[in-house]
Amino acid sequence: MARLELNAVGKSFGPVRCAEDFSLAVEPGEIVAVFGPSGSGKTVLLRMIAGMFEPDEGDILVGGRSIVGAPPEQRGIGMAFQNFALFPHMSAQNNIASGLRAKAGAAEVASRVKSISRLLKIEHVLGHRPRELSNGQKQRTALARALIGNPDVLLLDDPLRNVDAKLRYEMRLELPSLLRRSSAAVLYVTQDYREAMAIADRIAVLVDGRLVQVARPEEIYARPASVAVARLFGDPSINLAEVEPVAAQGGLSAQVAGTPVRLDAADLAIVDHGPCWLGVRPDDLVISRQAGENAMPARIVAVTPMHEKAVLLLRFADGSEWLAALPQGSAMASAEDGVFVRFAPETALLFDRATGLRVGLSHRRQAA
């Protein structure tokens, strides 16, 4: 199998810049999720690799060979779309086999269709046309068609977006092992951060056509490169407060919602950055009835049950509001209660307020 490389790739449509200086390498058998909000350039990127568009700048290589300018059928690419894109007049079997018939004999095609359909648990619907298939069966048929030719590179454009919640959950569990078995270099586009974290070995975060961070899922959640990335991961979203850290007793301290709070800081150079955003995830907040060090007084404004957890809207004395996520059934789940809010200093993130970039890389807890 082959390595996929994108070197300083750029693409524009008139005045709209869809990709800029995009560089990324995907190893054989590796799954990289391309994650970002709608309009960030994810699908344009896949279509450049597949040959539907050509990049304006940069190069795209598969196995060390440039594929820019090569026709799609000569690129060694398999692709599955979010809308399935099945031929409506063909059976599932013929849809799966359609891309292979020009390259292999009838016996080999039949054998491969049988093998891939058994793997994806759709052998019982091979004679059905798309209108007779459920969305889950359509999704598996499209995936089988992309996999059957043993492509060097597999491009998946939000393939689970149009399937029901139960199947989406099941496929999140099944897809990683299935895709790694193919040994292809996989780019998996999604707008769902949970899906990206569940499926990918690494996540490439796109914002406005720019690659802003590439890292393991747990690292991106724990050490986002910027405020923009931090906001994209987590539900509820990260809490942010304007602070100006100062050196205090060998560490850092900041006023948060009118309360002096100690921050973890192995790198006191953070102070040199001046005004910062302090970020604390709702899951990292601890709610109690007792005052004490680092305890910020607040009032619970509202409680929203969310399956396995309850989300509390907290209002501090200065009028600012944060969200806390507590296990469902927690004793601190009553509106209008007065409480104290704490967080462990090592769970806090600091971002430069002018640039939005994270500062103090050394003090954040290590990702597993």
Rank of each mutant, 00 (worst) to 15 (best):
V186M: 06
L323W: 00
A70Y: 06
F340H: 15
A97D: 01
D21Y: 03
Q328T: 13
M79Q: 00
A165D: 08
V9T: 12
N162H: 13
D21M: 04
N162D: 09
L167D: 00
V229L: 13
R168W: 07
E242C: 00
G360S: 07
A110E: 15
V227Q: 05
L206A: 11
V26R: 11
L313A: 13
A344K: 13
A106S: 12
R172M: 12
P224K: 04
T259V: 08
D318T: 05
R353I: 01
Q82K: 09
A80L: 06
R131N: 13
A104L: 14
L154E: 03
S23P: 11
E73K: 02
F53Q: 14
N135G: 15
P176N: 14
R364C: 10
E20A: 09
G279A: 07
F35M: 14
E321T: 11
E27Y: 01
H124W: 01
E57F: 13
V207K: 11
M79S: 03
N135D: 10
W277F: 14
A248Y: 01
K103C: 03
Q82H: 13
A185F: 04
V286D: 05
E308P: 01
F22G: 00
S98T: 03
V44Y: 09
K309P: 03
A110N: 10
A19V: 15
P345E: 09
D272T: 03
V189Y: 07
S288L: 05
V303T: 07
A144C: 05
L361Y: 07
R281S: 11
A204G: 06
R223G: 03
L126T: 00
K103I: 00
A184M: 04
R181A: 15
H89P: 04
T259S: 10
S117K: 10
S117A: 15
A8Y: 06
P305H: 06
I60D: 03
P236Y: 01
P345L: 04
V341E: 04
V339T: 03
M197H: 10
R140M: 11
S182F: 12
R342G: 00
A295V: 06
A367S: 14
S117N: 12
S182W: 12
